[in-house]
Write a protein that binds this DNA or RNA. Structure first.
Lengths: 138, 138
DNA sequence: TCTTGAACCTCTAGCCGCTAGAGGATGTAG
DNA sequence: CTACATCCTCTAGCGGCTAGAGGTTCAAGA
């Protein structure tokens, strides 16, 4: 009934080295081992790793996921903190979108360049003359 | 007439260790040194570093900037390649925006949680049951 | 029972684009 | 001539993995 790390990887779509990495940073508990030191996983591990994968796909950072997992294991608690973490993440995402949108607009103006010589290329000029605005994406 | 690394840093808003890092990866040429091995920069370095900073602020990767700098130094060439690099970057930015927007919508649905107990929290459920969609932001 | 060989193990290093710190040398103002 | 801000090099760390070396284990087939 138990899974090897490869089977867990196939079921959750999380790569084998990533699973070991999650164990190393304490996001996943150390599993049972065979006599030959190979890892064996149960259904609980599948659920937890799926949760992690989904949260990563939603862009949560590892530390946020660690907190969410802690809270998720505490069924009687009010989920206010879960709400806070998610809202904070939502704000970050909105912020990124806003900054990237400004970037997109600038780049779109720039690519209206009509293939002149470099010495009069609007893109090069645009980068060289770019003002004091602070984008810092990602 | 020449600048110390600290003065260059103040003029360009690029931090001192970052300037040394750019030199190390060959993005910035090795500058003149004093007898005591301290770096001294000229106006050309200020221009080049400003270009780099602006391009970074626009989200270009170091490798793209390396190419842009190479092309920028070739005034008679047609700027088609510059255009291509910029358009490729624009496409990436648009792609990121699209993925982040989908993420934002999902998170917004999730934060409509009304502070119940964890055991019936919609956010936790939403993460746990999250489908097979692949977001992978950033 | 033995032999394959795929999958497992640990360990280390690398990716990007910096940032931080140790520990020491240099340069300039008073 | 001294103080001390700034400079130097070198190494390690950040997040979140990914890749590779070099060796071991496990399960299926002969």
């Amino acid at each position: 009934m138990s899974l090897t790390i490869g089977e867990l990887s196939r079921q959750t779509q999380v790569k084998v080295p990533t699973i070991r990495y999650y164990e190393q940073i304490g996001l996943l508990a150390e599993p049972v081992r065979t006599d030959g030191k190979q890892r064996r996983y149960g259904p609980g591990d599948v659920r937890r790793l799926n949760f992690i994968r989904h949260a990563r796909a939603l862009g949560f950072e590892i530390e946020a996921i660690r907190q969410l997992l802690g809270l998720a294991g505490d069924p009687d608690r009010c989920c206010g903190e879960v709400h806070d973490i998610t809202r904070a993440h939502l704000e970050e995402v909105k912020d990124k979108i806003a900054r990237l949108s400004a970037l997109r607009d600038e780049l779109e103006t720039m690519v209206a360049c009509d293939h002149r010589r470099i010495s009069e290329c609007r893109i090069i000029e645009a980068i060289a003359d770019h003002g004091e605005c602070q984008h810092h994406q990602q």
